[in-house]
Amino acid sequence: MQVVSKTLSAAERAYREIKERILSGDLAGGELVSENEMAAELGTSRTPVREAFLRLETEGWMRLYPKRGALVVPVPSHEAEHVIHARYIVETGAVDALTRIARAGLIPRLRESLDRQRELADAGDLDEFAIVDADFHREYVVSADNPLLIGFYDSLRERQRRMNSVALQRGETNPHHIIEQHTRLADLIEAADAAGFAEALAVHLTDVHGVTLRGV
Rank of each mutant, 00 (worst) to 15 (best):
V4K: 10
V4T: 15
V4Q: 14
V4S: 08
L8V: 06
L8T: 04
S9A: 09
Y15C: 12
I18D: 07
E20N: 15
E20L: 10
I22T: 01
L23I: 10
G25I: 00
G25V: 10
L27N: 10
L27I: 01
L27G: 09
G29S: 04
G29V: 04
G30I: 09
G30N: 01
E31D: 10
E31H: 12
E31L: 05
M38P: 02
A40Q: 14
L42M: 07
G43F: 02
T44G: 04
P48D: 02
V49N: 06
R50A: 08
E51L: 15
A52V: 06
F53P: 05
L54W: 07
R55F: 00
E57R: 00
E57T: 03
Y65T: 11
R68K: 08
R68Q: 07
L71G: 09
V72M: 01
V75W: 02
S77R: 09
S77C: 13
E79D: 13
A80E: 10
A80G: 03
R87Y: 02
V90G: 06
V90N: 02
A94F: 04
V95H: 03
D96M: 13
D96R: 15
D96E: 13
A97S: 15
R100C: 08
R100Y: 12
A102Q: 03
A104Q: 14
G105C: 07
G105E: 08
I107Q: 00
R111T: 14
E112C: 07
D115Y: 00
E119R: 06
A123S: 11
A123E: 05
G124P: 03
D125E: 06
D127F: 02
D127Q: 12
A130L: 06
V132K: 08
V132H: 14
D133L: 15
D133G: 11
F136Q: 13
Y140I: 00
Y140N: 07
V141R: 03
S143R: 06
S143Y: 02
N146S: 03
L148G: 10
L148V: 14
L149Y: 03
G151F: 00
F152C: 01
F152H: 07
R157T: 12
E158V: 11
R161M: 09
R162N: 04
M163K: 05
V166R: 12
Q169C: 08
R170L: 14
H176Q: 09
H177F: 05
H177Y: 05
H177T: 15
I178D: 13
E180N: 11
E180Y: 08
H182R: 11
D187S: 07
A191L: 08
A192M: 05
D193C: 02
G196T: 05
F197V: 01
F197I: 01
F197A: 01
A198T: 10
A202I: 05
H204G: 15
H204Y: 02
L205M: 01
D207S: 14
V208F: 10
V208Y: 12
H209M: 01
H209V: 00
G215R: 06
G215A: 15
G215T: 15
